[in-house]
Design a protein around this nucleic acid. Structure first.
Lengths: 344, 344
DNA sequence: ATTTGTAATGGAAACGTTTCCAATAAAAAT
DNA sequence: ATTTTTATTGGAAACGTTTCCATTACAAAT
């Protein structure tokens, strides 16, 4: 059974192909009566326009690509990413766009895949997630060829982007620990500092300490790697320090879970011996014991904003390339308490 | 700057368009020499074949759609889903396929979206995730129009599918609790029983009990709803029972987290007062306290298998519609202990 | 010398739309 | 009555590929 095309419908309805096309594009310049006839014919024949043909002639795909540009290992794992995706989807669906997901880890292969995506015109626009400071791709990208919005932030690039305000989030978390009287405050990053989010959170942490005039110990700053395991490791090294920190700001709840394990393993109590503030407010955080005080980020909203921005760039190109930073919120739960000298 | 097409390359290289096309399709019937010339010309002009045009003439998109057919609420949230997606991606990328993600919740809108996806030829094949028993869509799907593999299982449908062996997983989990001497074993499902996975896990649980000849209390069977919150609720109702269960099989780690909270809230200890077995082995499970004994499922492998199956269906249509059920593995950790009469 | 076979190539047709231009009919303005 | 405008419509051209068929050149076989 060969596919039924627009010509079949035209013949059936006794009209020209142009008219059929106009009907299906909700063009107003076709009389009520023929419109009925065309629709009836299409229905009878079971006609649906072929999206590939439409794309060819229109030069538009109505597809946006979501580029996962994280390190080779965890492309989709992040529950955060899933929520962002949900946000994106909820807005593009309104405009009848579709989403292509493309994990393109930095490196020869991923770079080529990303570039080809643009050059072969797979999508009309890109949302790039998880940018790294050391990523040279933005320079080699066919310039201005395709609208891009960064989900994240890249200093120095004139790209539209939406991100959570990592700096302020970290600043407030640290400030909160300071307000509880803590002075030996360590930090474990969510991931390597080549990720701008990790860097920004560290900067917020440092700024809060500096403002209070507290000396900064380099050994108090550890690098996580997105996993509980990395948090476990980092916390162990922190616990071996003398004096050990009385509080730790951990820039990822997932990493924090491993860190908590390490603390328990050392027979220390949270928050009695060590206070903890996390970051992300994943679904599980409220159910840890004690419930984790953490920085909540509007994951879905980030996706929505990014998508909305991209939609704007796609419809009228005179849109300026905005940079939006969405506010976080510190969620107080049970993993912190005022400083008291419980350390050795 | 108008896009450079195959004609430009042909002119530049002094050959016909057919030849250029052949070069780019790695056809062997073109001499080494012209091949060089064409490639050089293409490189000079910066030519890349337009994917839409190619799709139109080939009648193939080289896109597969991943259909999220869960209930309206949580389309992407599941970390499990993310891993499956990763598995899918890792195999389709080898064949130069792309992935479209399409949350199509059951209902008028989602149904139409799913159907249009097929009828407008957005993709060559479908992987449908999260099937529900009560989903009528499979009957209204353009029959045999498009290769489909189910990520999950739907009894009675002659569809290719790959799923985890939920039944056996649940059976083994329950059997384990029985072997520890427990007799009052409750269960909380991962989600509503219209989801085949939830149903199968319940069946496995029941079968284990029946085999041991244990009376089944309907009040011991609770319905979760994918969230920690739902687990919290369910466990509270379980704890109010008299006698309360000495062990609970919870068919989702995420749900289990909420349940654990409820147990702690009642000032009971795991595993001293209640033993717990979860399901899924999410990243956090090993870091709970006590570490959660749970049923691990090969999430990524499911994605790989499903994708591989779909690739087969796409390449030669004589492939039979296989049904694969991947084995689970019970991971013993610290949330269970032999039965002792700690209950009131 | 002629025929046959093979490898390489050019170019038209086809894929299924949209869009533009011309044509027609009807209505309005002169 | 004639011209101008407006509302519909038909259909050719275009979008950028692939594929098929015909052609050419040349080697091999007769």
């Amino acid at each position: 059974m060969p596919a039924v095309t627009i010509k079949d419908v035209a013949r059936e309805a006794g009209v020209g192909v142009g008219t059929v096309s106009r009907v299906f594009n909700r063009s107003t310049l076709v009389s009520q009566e023929t419109q009925q006839r065309v629709l009836a014919a299409a229905d009878k024949l079971g006609y649906y326009p072929d999206v590939s043909a439409r794309r060819l002639v229109k030069g538009r795909t109505r597809i946006i690509a979501f580029i996962e540009r994280h390190t080779p290992r965890p492309p989709f794992v992040d529950a955060f990413m899933a929520e962002v995706l949900r946000g994106i989807h909820s807005v593009v669906i309104e405009e009848d766009y579709h989403i292509l997901i493309e994990p393109c880890a930095p490196g020869e292969k991923g770079d080529r895949r990303l570039l080809n995506l643009i050059r072969e015109k797979h999508a009309d626009g890109l949302i790039i997630s998880g940018p790294r400071i050391d990523d040279p791709i933005y320079r080699s990208m066919p310039n201005g060829q395709i609208p891009v919005v960064l989900q994240g932030y890249l200093p120095g690039e004139a790209l539209a982007c939406v991100d959570v305000d990592n700096y302020t989030g970290a600043y407030q978390a640290t400030e909160y620990l300071l307000s509880l009287g803590h002075r030996r405050i360590a930090m474990i990053s969510n991931g390597p500092f080549v990720y701008t989010a990790a860097e920004a959170r560290k900067a917020g942490y440092l700024a809060a300490l500096e403002k209070t005039g507290i000396e900064i110990f380099p050994e108090y700053i550890c690098e996580g790697a997105f996993s509980p395991e990395s948090g476990y490791q980092a916390m162990q090294s922190l616990l071996s320090l003398d004096p050990r920190p009385s509080a730790v700001f951990i820039a990822s709840d997932t990493v924090a879970i491993g860190a908590i394990k390490a603390i328990e393993g050392a027979n220390l109590l949270i928050p009695e011996d060590i206070s903890i503030v996390g970051f992300d407010d994943i679904a599980w955080s409220a159910y840890l014991s004690p419930p984790l005080t953490t920085v909540r980020l509007p994951a879905q909203e980030i996706g929505e904003k990014a998508a909305r921005l991209l939609m704007n760039l796609l419809s009228d190109d005179k849109t300026v390339c905005t940079q939006e930073f969405l506010p976080t919120r510190l969620i107080l739960r049970g993993s912190c308490q005022p400083y008291s000298d419980n350390s050795r």
